[in-house]
Amino acid sequence: MADLFYDGLTPVAAFDALLRDAAYRPLPDDWWVGVADIADSTRAIAEGAYKTVNMVGAAVISAQRNARPGRAFPFVFGGDGASFAVPDGDADSARAALQAVQGWAQEAFGLHLRVALVPVARIRAAGKELGVARYQVAEAVDYAMFSGGGMAWAEAELKAGRIGMDVVPGATGTARPDLTGLSCRWSHMKARHGHIVSLLVLPVEGGDARAFRALCREVLTLTGALDRGGHPVPETGGRVRFPSPGLKLELAASGRGRLAVLKESFAAWAVLRTGLGPRGFDVARYVRDTSRNADFRKFDDGLKMTLDCDRATVEALTGLLDRGAAEGVLRYGLELQDEAMMTCIVPSAFDDDHMHFVDGAAGGYTRAAARLKGRG
């Protein structure tokens, strides 16, 4: 049955296996793809609002999860937006959740979130494929990976205005999104080895797919030699402080009173700072899982990574990617920063399935996309 398609996928444990076609299964034709992207996110970043931009991108995923509790579905965080897929029976709830986040982003932050829901069959009719895999980062957490060009096509159509839907903020019938569990309490994480690198490596339209994946393997080999593969989130977790740097964003997301959110944020800070939690809560395990569960690398019609990287590796990486761009195999964007940041979905701190979306703290994937080099 199509509704059980994603549940039936066996998660892949090795990241480099995602460079093989055999890791992916085609999404059923009667599924729907949702895409969301903040218009003019570059301006928002220039005004210092990248944490807000990330929060809105993660809110798309949070609202979809809360619209269908307990239902697994593929999604990917993109920094200034997100993408996902749902079976036909969930299309109405997916559409409502998308529009609710769109209205909330405008009202709370003045950000225009472009959103669309498009049938997989339409993507294939445009000549694109859409395959999905599950990459297991920890026992309780896996993330979706996409290949075939279909998701990239949907995102391009959205940005071009050829697909999409709009909500008038405050209009009758526009519900507030359920963003339960969405938070950003961790402080930024400073680079330990020189730089936080936000990297996008994308195939050239009509290019040699085999050569592209070969170069991606070289990238993974190079970055795999970094400490913990370049993972930017320390095993001991990030720093925390009170009030948290994301308190205003959490207030906007929760819809609750300031005092209630302050109390909850203070309790979380005290637990993480002292290591002493309520009965049944293993603080050390939660912190380790935060690092283990983080999505610092992904394959979403291309390689996307946030890495803690030394200068020599940055130079070697740039040389390798320049070669690929000159050969017409790939396009790439690379942004250097001093810190990384996380936006989190934590339905319950007592469970192991909390998710943490990682990006560079000074523009990240959005600025890397603006720096794309190569023939496109």
Rank of each mutant, 00 (worst) to 15 (best):
G89S: 10
A96R: 14
S41N: 01
L113N: 01
D37Q: 10
I38R: 00
A36D: 08
G70V: 13
S147C: 04
S83N: 11
D40N: 10
A138S: 13
R43N: 06
A138L: 05
N54Y: 03
A152R: 15
A121G: 10
F73R: 11
H112L: 04
V33E: 00
D29C: 05
R122V: 13
L18Q: 12
A108L: 07
Q64M: 11
H112F: 01
A72I: 10
V76C: 09
S62H: 12
E155F: 06
G127I: 15
A67F: 06
G131K: 15
A154P: 08
A121R: 15
G150C: 03
V137K: 07
V101I: 07
R43A: 13
W31A: 01
V86F: 03
G127A: 09
A44D: 04
W104L: 01
A97Q: 03
G127K: 15
G110N: 03
M151L: 12
F75A: 04
A85P: 02
W32T: 11
A100C: 03
G34P: 04
P26R: 15
G103P: 03
Q136A: 14
V56N: 02
A144E: 03
S41G: 01
F146L: 01
R71A: 09
G57A: 12
R20F: 08
F73L: 04
P69I: 13
Q136H: 14
V120C: 02
L158V: 14
A154S: 10
M151G: 10
V53A: 06
E129S: 14
P74V: 02
S41W: 00
P74Y: 07
V120L: 00
R68E: 07
A156H: 15
A100D: 02
M55T: 13
L117S: 06
Q136C: 07
M55V: 04
Q136R: 15
A58R: 04
V33I: 12
G148A: 03
L130E: 04
F75H: 10
G89V: 10
A94I: 01
R68N: 08
D92A: 10
L158H: 15
V101L: 02
F146I: 02
F109A: 04
